[in-house]
């Protein structure tokens, strides 16, 4: 400590992150409130570059390609984006084995998000983090409230209840070696009513790895709520940025005005 005299160590300068999320299907960014009506929303490289210019702290790609034949297309997308956008990239969707994780990292992803496969084979989280390091492994948790103060983990877009308690599952994947949790409040996803703040806070306080809040963002106040009331380390949103309602920079300015540390 003698090396740094006079520092007030209570000041936390680490910025809360804002992460735009892009759904990618067969190599194109698609938009849609649900999975039924998808519209082409452009070239992933161009969209990613635009968010980078707006000051996005990271970008998350969710590969929603249905056909396994087209799975390799996401690798080319990641390669192209990583050549031009120099901020962290997270990629999720269809990750089933350690080899998938390695392929995505080799293509230029910094982190890989695992969802259903983690539920089916928790050992995958341990194997992947042992192989590539915890810092590269994000476990995505889709949670829904099942009774007051209780949330369970769902898969398949909220259709399958795994019966796992969301808080216990978050703690379990943390001990298996996850480096971060991407928590989606499934009751709120697509509603634009804001995060489930009780859920977000419960998960964030239950683990000592960073938690990204996702699902339900409809305005900038929701982002600030996720950090202040939800205790999230980062907030992820799709539609409020895609439709041009707000820029990432506006979101950051809004959060800064509410006393949240951001990178501006």
């Amino acid at each position: 400590m003698a090396l740094f005299p006079g520092w007030d160590t209570d000041d936390i300068m680490l910025a809360k992150r804002i992460i735009p999320c892009l759904d990618v299907k067969a190599g194109r960014v698609v938009k849609g409130v649900n999975f039924v009506e998808l519209r082409d929303a452009g070239d992933p490289v161009e969209v990613a570059r635009r968010y980078d210019e707006q000051g996005a702290d990271e970008i998350t790609f969710l590969d929603i390609t249905a056909s396994s034949d087209d799975r390799d297309i996401i690798l080319h997308v990641v390669e192209q984006v990583a050549e031009q956008v120099f901020i962290p990239l997270t990629v999720g969707g269809g990750v089933r084995e350690v080899a998938d994780v390695r392929r995505l990292l080799n293509a230029g992803a910094d982190k890989v998000s695992i969802n259903t496969a983690a539920v089916n084979h928790p050992q995958l989280v341990a194997d992947a983090s042992a192989k590539v390091g915890s810092q590269c492994i994000v476990v995505a948790i889709d949670a829904k409230q099942t009774s007051p103060g209780k949330w369970q983990v769902f898969t398949h877009g909220g259709r399958n209840n795994t019966g796992l308690d969301a808080i216990e599952w978050a703690q379990r994947v943390t001990s298996l070696g996850a480096g971060e949790i991407l928590l989606t409040c499934m009751d709120r996803d697509g509603t634009r009513n804001g995060f489930d703040l009780a859920l977000t806070r419960a998960i964030s306080e239950a683990v000592d790895i960073p938690v990204i809040a996702s699902g339900g963002v409809g305005n900038l106040q929701h982002l600030a709520d996720g950090v202040i009331a939800g205790k999230a380390d980062a907030v992820l949103a799709a539609s409020i940025f895609h439709y041009g309602e707000y820029t990432v920079r506006q979101a950051k300015q809004y959060m800064r005005d509410r006393g949240i540390e951001v990178r501006l």
Binding site: M13, L14, A15, R17, Q135, D208, I209, P210, D233
Partner: peptide
């Protein structure tokens, strides 16, 4: 023991994100 913010909240490790 040092991983505590001014408001008493626990600081996450890894230190992940943008810092000064």
């Amino acid at each position: 023991a040092a991983m505590v913010a001014a408001d008493g909240a626990r600081l996450k490790v890894p230190h992940m994100g943008w810092n000064e």
